[in-house]
């Protein structure tokens, strides 16, 4: 009851045109919005959704690459891959913390992931059957993520922007590391080169889909642009990614699985063929190759960890009680 009353009060407050105007003026002036500042309810909700989706993506994203940690082909690669997947867990941790500044708990957000209420990036619903996928995820998936994330370093919400600065630095290192794996394979034996090409064939289109639906079909864009949560359109970012990536692939002697891919001399851009949005929608709906597997793996880790979390809590409570008892005894 009390919470409900609070929500109603907040809602009335949220519609206050004067507060909204003042908020928008601060955003327009490129001031950072901080946790204790007034913000429209829609802004808060949008950020919670976006930051938590991003956090979930980092955590679920540990699984496809984690698949190769025990099988990495050299000790150097093993250490680098383990460190990379660990970085992703670290990104998840600061993103959950950034989301918590908006008044939601990590437990609540993780609960939304496990029940399927919250989404994560669909790219992680694709499998990693080959070692080349470790290179391709770094080069293409992290590469696409960076294109999306660099503008977020200037996001109007301070805690998110600051988390993204650190994340982008690490992601760009991961991208170079991934490209180096692909390069080693592309310059290796015919079997290794085939491994790299096969992996590119599988990841190219899903990587392009990471930028989200085409601008004409994107639901959230206009308001998010005005709030400076988003600064570039999906299609613009996708184009930027293609222009940067295609020459890197050609340099390695790899072929992109798009017969319509061609360079337009007049515009200076690479033009791509039609993206199969029906595939994107299918995977978002849950009908991708690994959706069920990924969520089940998260659920399993969560369930198997329950007794550990309970023990840590019980022990902390016992210690606190003993400390309190000792204090009373001393007095």
């Amino acid at each position: 009851m009390y919470a409900q009353a609070l929500n109603v009060a907040e809602k009335a407050h949220a519609d206050d045109p004067e507060l909204r105007a003042r908020f928008q003026a601060r955003v327009d002036a490129e001031e950072k919005i901080e946790p204790n500042d007034w913000m429209p309810e829609g802004y808060r909700r949008t950020l919670v959704r976006q930051i938590s989706q991003h956090a979930h993506s980092e955590i679920v994203g540990m699984l496809p690459e984690g698949n190769w940690i025990t099988r990495a082909p050299s000790l150097k690669r093993k250490a680098a891959l383990l460190a990379k997947v660990q970085d992703e867990g670290g990104h998840g941790l600061y993103l959950y913390s950034a989301a918590e500044t908006l008044g939601v708990s990590r437990e609540e957000l993780v609960g939304q992931l496990l029940t399927g209420k919250a989404k994560y990036s669909s790219i992680f619903n694709y499998p990693t059957p080959s070692w080349a996928d470790m290179g391709m995820i770094g080069w293409l998936v992290d590469g696409a993520a960076i294109m999306n994330q660099i503008p977020l370093c200037r996001c109007s919400y301070g805690p998110y922007a600051r988390a993204m600065i650190r994340i982008c630095k690490e992601e760009s290192f991961h991208q170079r590391q991934g490209y180096e794996i692909v390069m080693t394979l592309a310059k290796g034996s015919p079997a290794q080169k085939k491994m790299a090409q096969d992996s590119l064939n599988r990841w190219w289109w899903p990587a392009l889909m990471m930028f989200g639906p085409s601008d004409k079909d994107s639901q959230h864009s206009d308001q998010n642009m005005a709030w400076k949560i988003k600064r570039f359109s999906n299609d613009d970012l996708r184009q930027k990614f293609i222009d940067a990536t295609v020459p890197q692939g050609h340099f390695l002697g790899l072929t992109f699985p798009d017969p319509d891919l061609r360079f337009n001399e007049a515009t200076g851009h690479w033009e791509h063929g039609p993206i199969d949005w029906s595939e994107f929608n299918r995977v978002v709906r849950g009908e991708g190759p690994c959706n069920r597997e990924r969520l089940k793996a998260r659920q399993k880790a969560h369930d198997e960890g329950a007794w550990v979390r309970e023990a840590a809590l019980a022990h902390a409570e016992k210690r606190a009680a003993r400390k309190a008892a000792a204090k009373i005894a001393a007095e």
Partner: peptide, 25 residues
């Protein structure tokens, strides 16, 4: 390293990976 991504809580997932990295090093 077999724990990576499957730890009982995120903080411990990172700690187990840290120790694995030390040992591999």
């Amino acid at each position: 390293s077999e724990w990576c991504g499957h730890g009982p809580m995120l903080e411990e997932d990172l700690a187990l990976a840290n120790m694995a990295l030390d040992l591999i090093g």
